[in-house]
């Protein structure tokens, strides 16, 4: 093969993928950035009024709006709690799996995989049915007929959070389980012989040995939980009472489409993209450290 052929070939293989992804992301990101510096609403979409360049006007509006800060705050808190709960449940079950017999292990992993594969849409409707105010199963069992789980802001976040974790812990469980399996049995047995409890050997052996993997799982969960959309959108009917349960992703979408404030919605999108970009950089660094060739 000639030198020129050697250097050109890889790009031939990459060409179709790049040809799809570059415009698919390039155009929307470019447009988000562009729209975010224009006054662009329904009047401009319909062509009734000219679009005017307003520089950082949308950003100024956004940063001066207490609602933006409160949504940003609750997005961060909601995501943080979800990450912690997802990890706790996922890690606990991963440890249980390593000790379970054949059949319990199979049953548990099948149940978890099914929850992972179920569409976010289906999960949302089932959980809404379970927590229905009038005659839902949960209210009947608890004897609190008529209690509305979708009224108070944080109670609502609790139910939506339980649904999100239901979908997302299986992946964490499976990844950590595979990681634990990769730890030599002799190491775990030695700890048990030395009288370490399950709790101790988890914190002193499994966690330190799996630190790179755990970092990756944590960052993946952060990214995933930070951009939750479907469950909030469906379960709280687009963001809850007066938008009290909105998160950044839903807020950007609703501002652009619901209120036809395309410029402002784009500005929210840009802010969100920048936050995710920072997290992603940490992710790439963590991958690099595990020896993933990057």
């Amino acid at each position: 093969m000639t030198q020129a052929g050697r250097t050109r070939t890889p790009w031939l293989y990459l060409l179709p993928t790049v040809a799809v992804l570059a415009p698919l992301f390039g155009y929307p990101i470019y447009m988000l950035g562009l729209l975010s510096v224009f006054d662009y609403r329904q009047a401009q979409v319909s062509g009734g009024e000219p679009t005017t360049f307003i520089g950082f006007g949308n950003y100024a509006t956004l940063f001066g709006d207490p609602r933006f800060w409160s949504i940003l705050g609750q997005t961060v808190v909601f995501a943080a709690v979800l990450v912690i709960v997802t990890l706790a449940v996922g890690a606990a079950l991963a440890v249980v799996l390593t000790r379970a017999g054949h059949w319990p292990r199979l049953l548990l992993s099948l149940a978890a995989m099914a929850a992972w594969a179920a569409p976010a849409m289906t999960g949302s409707t089932v959980w809404m049915f379970l927590f229905d105010a009038d005659l839902g199963l949960v209210n009947q069992v608890l004897g609190i007929d008529g209690f509305n789980w979708f009224y108070d802001r944080w109670v609502t976040f609790g139910v939506v959070g339980a649904t999100v974790v239901w979908h997302s812990f299986p992946l964490v469980m499976v990844m950590l389980f595979a990681g634990i399996q990769a730890i030599p049995v002799s190491v775990r047995e030695a700890a048990a012989l030395d009288g370490a409890s399950e709790w101790q050997s988890f914190w002193r052996i499994i966690v330190p040995m799996l630190r790179p993997l755990i970092t990756i799982v944590v960052i993946q969960s952060i990214i995933w939980d930070f951009k939750i959309f479907t469950q909030i959108y469906v379960m709280t009917n687009g963001g809850g009472i007066a938008g009290q349960n909105s998160v950044l992703n839903v807020y950007a979408y609703q501002t652009a489409f619901g209120s036809s404030e395309y410029g402002l919605g784009s500005a929210i999108g840009v802010v969100m993209t920048l936050i995710l970009l920072v997290v992603t950089l940490f992710y790439i660094r963590a991958l690099h450290r595990t020896g993933e060739k990057l």
């Binding site: 992804l21 447009m31 970009l277 992603t280 790439i284």
Partner: peptide, 28 residues
């Protein structure tokens, strides 16, 4: 295959997979 820019492409692949779909659909 070995070629220059491979790491950049891999990093970009990861970066775009993090991008929220809700933001993509507004301009699209």
């Amino acid at each position: 295959l070995d070629f220059r820019g491979k790491n950049v492409i891999l990093a970009l692949i990861i970066a775009v997979s993090m991008f929220p779909g809700a933001l993509l659909v507004v301009p699209l």
